[in-house]
Design a protein around this nucleic acid. Structure first.
Length: 430
RNA sequence: GGAGAGAUGGCUGAGUGGUCGAAAGCGGCCGCCUGCUAAGCGGUUGUAGGGGUGUUAAGCUCUUACCCCGGGUUCGAAUCCCGGUCUCUCCGCCA
C-alpha cells in the first residue's frame, strides 16, 4: 500500500509513476477526495465525542435529579448524531482502504521505461545457449521417453496443467529442492522455514495477492483457507502485526513449498509440458530489512539465486524488468532466465523464468503491518521486504532435461546434484 | 468433535459501570550514586488517527480510538449482555 501522505502531498509524482506502468491514475483522484472528506468527518466526530465524554463526566457528578435527566436527554441526542457520523466515517474508511489496496507500488527511477515484456532489459548473459550435435528434444519427450514424467496421468487424476513425476524424475526434483535449501542455509546464511501451505485471507492482503488477484488463487470456502501461490505469502506474513527489534534485521528466510495457481490470467499460454502448472514446487527466499539496506539486499538476493544457476552450469541471463511489466507490488524486479534449447516455438529455444527477485520497499510492510524500531524506545518504522525464487522447480527441471540430454535419450545429472542422487550420474531408461 | 477455564501494555499481573489509557512488579530508556562488578536512588516508558502551531523539520499542544474481534445495553463500558476467534486443561479421534 502506498503512503496516503505521499499521495496527499505529491499526487503528480504518484500519477507519473503509475503512468510509467501503464496503470490507471483516476484512483488517485478518488482516493484524494475520500481522504479529504474522511478527515473532515473524523475531525467532527472527534469533537462530538469529546463533547460527549465531557458531558458524561459531568452527569456523574450531578446531584440534582432533574438536571441530571435533562443532561442525559441532551447527551442521548448527541449520541445519535455521533452514531450517524460514525457510520459515515466507517464507510469512508473502508472505501478508502479498499481502493488503496488496489493501487500498485510505484517503480523506482532506475526501472527502465516500457510497457511489456519486450521492453525488458537483458543486463547480462552467463554461458551461451548450448549447441547439440543432434536435434535436442523438448523436455516432455525426454521425460516421457525416460518414463520419469507422466503428463497424461496427471491430467487424468487432476485435469489439465497437472503432471506426475516418477521414479528418478521425482528424485531429481527432490534432490534439487534439498540442494537449493542446503546452499541457501549453509552457504548463504538463510534460516529455513517450513510454513503452512494454506493461509488466512489477511496474509494474502498483506503480500498483495488480494484483493486484486483473487482469480489466480485456490480458495477453500468452508474454512476460508487459501492455498499458497508462493512461499512469499506465509513467510513474509510470519511477522504480520509485529514490531520487530531493529537488531534482528535483516531477517533472511528460505522456504520450500508447493505453489498453487489457477492461471486464469495465462489461459492458453504455455500449455505444453510442465512449464506452467496449477501446482508446482519452489524454494523461495524472503528478506525483511532496514530501508537503507534494501538495495544491497536485493543485489545479494539476486546473487544468491544466480549462484544456483551457475553451479548447475546451465546458461542463464539476468533481465531487468521494465515499469510496464513489473508486478503489482514491487518497486524493482530482476528475473533470472535459464535457457531451454528445445522449448517454445523458436528453433533457438526459449529463456525460462526460473527466478524473480524483487524489492517491495515498504509496500507489503504497510499492508501486513510489519514494523521495527531502530533502537529501543524509537518510533516504529516500516521495514522493506524482498523476495526471490531460489529457484522454481519445473523450469529448472525443464532446463536440466533439455540441456543435459544425450543423443540416446538419457540425461546426465548435473555434477552438484549427484551426491543428492546417491552418486548416480546419468538417468537412463529403466 | 464434547466439557470446562481463560484472553488486559514488551512481559507478569490487578482491575465488575464514571475517580482507568489502565495499579503494582519486571524489563527498557535517561540521570545520579558507586574504585570495578553486583546492588541502590530519582525520573521516564504503548499504538494509531485527526486538529492547531511550526518551513509540508524537530518540537510543542489539543483531541479521538484502541484492555482478543464484532455487535448491543447505557448519558457513560476494560468492567454488563449477545455472537465469533484464539489459547489452555480434560475426554474422544487420529498420521
Amino acid at each position: 500500500m502506498l503512503d496516503i501522505r505521499l499521495i496527499r502531498e505529491h499526487p503528480d509524482d504518484v500519477k507519473a509513476g503509475l503512468r510509467r506502468m501503464g496503470a490507471d491514475t483516476e484512483a488517485i483522484d478518488i482516493v484524494l477526495k475520500f481522504d479529504e472528506l474522511r478527515r473532515k468527518i473524523e475531525t467532527e466526530v472527534s469533537a462530538m465525542r469529546n463533547q460527549r465524554n465531557q458531558g458524561s463526566k459531568e452527569i456523574g457528578k450531578l446531584k440534582d435529579p432533574e438536571e441530571r435527566e435533562s443532561r442525559k436527554t441532551e447527551m442521548r441526542l448527541l449520541g445519535d448524531r455521533i452514531s450517524q457520523s460514525e457510520e459515515e466515517l466507517n464507510r469512508l474508511n473502508t472505501e478508502q482502504r479498499t481502493l488503496m489496496l488496489t493501487i500498485p507500488n510505484l517503480p523506482l527511477p532506475e526501472v527502465p521505461n516500457g510497457h511489456d515484456e519486450s521492453d525488458n532489459v537483458v543486463t547480462r548473459t552467463i554461458g551461451a545457449p548450448k549447441s547439440f550435435p543432434f536435434p535436442p528434444k523438448p523436455h516432455w519427450d525426454v521425460g516421457t521417453g525416460l518414463d520419469i514424467l507422466d503428463i497424461e496421468r496427471g491430467v487424468k487424476i487432476s485435469g489439465s496443467r497437472f503432471y506426475v513425476l516418477k521414479a528418478l524424475g521425482a528424485a531429481l526434483q527432490r534432490a534439487l529442492i534439498t540442494w537449493f535449501l542446503d546452499v541457501h542455509v549453509m552457504e548463504q546464511g538463510y534460516t529455513e522455514i517450513y510454513p503452512p501451505f494454506v493461509v488466512k485471507r489477511e496474509c494474502l492482503i498483506g503480500t498483495a495477492q488480494l484483493p486484486k488477484f483473487e482469480d489466480n488463487l485456490y480458495h477453500d470456502i468452508e474454512d476460508d483457507f487459501w492455498m499458497v501461490p508462493t512461499a512469499e505469502v506465509p513467510v513474509t506474513n510470519l511477522h504480520r502485526d509485529e514490531i520487530l527489534d531493529g537488531s534482528q534485521l535483516p531477517l533472511r528466510y528460505v522456504a520450500y513449498t508447493p505453489c498453487f495457481r489457477r492461471e486464469k490470467m495465462s489461459a492458453g499460454r504455455d500449455v505444453r509440458g510442465i512449464k506452467r502448472g496449477h501446482q508446482f514446487d519452489k524454494v523461495e527466499m524472503v528478506k525483511i530489512c532496514r530501508p537503507e539496506n534494501s538495495m544491497e539486499e536485493l543485489d545479494s538476493l539476486l546473487a544468491n539465486a544466480e549462484d544456483l544457476c551457475a553451479k548447475l552450469e546451465i546458461p542463464y541471463r539476468v533481465v531487468k524488468i521494465c515499469a510496464g511489466d513489473k508486478t503489482f507490488s514491487n518497486m524493482i524486479q530482476y528475473d533470472l532466465e535459464m535457457h531451454a534449447p528445445a522449448c517454445g516455438d523458436s528453433p533457438k529455444g526459449e529463456w525460462l523464468e526460473v527466478s524473480s527477485c524483487s524489492n517491495f520497499g515498504n509496500f507489503q510492510a504497510r499492508r501486513a503491518n510489519i514494523r521495527f524500531r531502530t533502537e529501543p524506545g524509537a518510533k516504529p518504522e516500516y521495514p522493506h521486504t524482498l523476495n526471490g525464487s531460489g529457484l522454481a522447480l519445473p523450469r529448472v527441471m525443464i532446463a536440466i532435461l533439455e540441456n543435459y540430454q544425450n543423443e540416446d535419450g538419457s540425461v546426465t545429472i548435473p555434477q552438484v546434484l549427484r551426491k543428492y542422487m546417491h552418486g548416480l550420474d546419468v538417468i537412463r531408461k529403466a
